[in-house]
Design a protein around this nucleic acid. Sequence first.
DNA 1: TTGACATATTCCGATATAGGCATATAATCT
DNA 2: AGATTATATGCCTATATCGGAATATGTCAA
Lengths: 113, 113
Amino acid sequence: MARTSTTSDVFNAVAEGRRREILDTLIAGEKAVGTIVGDLSLSQPQVSKHLRVLSEVGLVRCRAEGRRRLYSLEPARLQPFHDWLAKYEQALDERLDRMDDYLTDLQRKGEQQ
Amino acid sequence: MARTSTTSDVFNAVAEGRRREILDTLIAGEKAVGTIVGDLSLSQPQVSKHLRVLSEVGLVRCRAEGRRRLYSLEPARLQPFHDWLAKYEQALDERLDRMDDYLTDLQRKGEQQ
DNA sequence: TTGACATATTCCGATATAGGCATATAATCT
DNA sequence: AGATTATATGCCTATATCGGAATATGTCAA
């Protein structure tokens, strides 16, 4: 078995560096495929394929305008990352809090002597 | 060419679901390999291999205690994700701001008539 | 030292991926 | 309709990855 399908979850979609580059370039706003091809130095099929993956996980949206396709970010789909990170922040904070309590405790005991 | 090496960056390391599970189980604190094997339903070599990857990108730390290895989270390494997400949040906020200005502008013009 | 336990590593096969190139589809223009 | 532009897809190969089983390494105990 190889890795979990890249289209199955957002984490895999974003694991690919070029896909992150594509997302980056879309921060500026909606762009046509050709524009992206020009911005980054990628082949057109390469960009189309990556956009397909990003599309399938919902990270980008596509809008047809004449013969071009305008792609744009769908930042709501970054929520899984937020949630994921939040878990660790929370856990880390709690650990730091416990550490803090512990230190305060130590200090109190020290002062009592 | 296949995907960028999993050990090269944190994004690839985390793309694997089981590795995320391992990180999750480490939120509770330092754990031995065997404990992780018990917690999740993975084989011991599988866990060891995943821990190796996580180790190589610095997401976990290892400490030897007798014949076991205690692994723990290294949450500082989540910084790349924070930075990455921050970029999009910022971009999104700015876009919302511009949209806001635009709407305010429209409204002002409407009131003038 | 021998044996039991804990973890890491190696070898293997199956599979998915990424990229290149050619080509198909689709829309616009003359 | 035919030509041109814009994008998507299909086929192919090389490669990395995952998981499994066996085995190596390392550590403690008797």
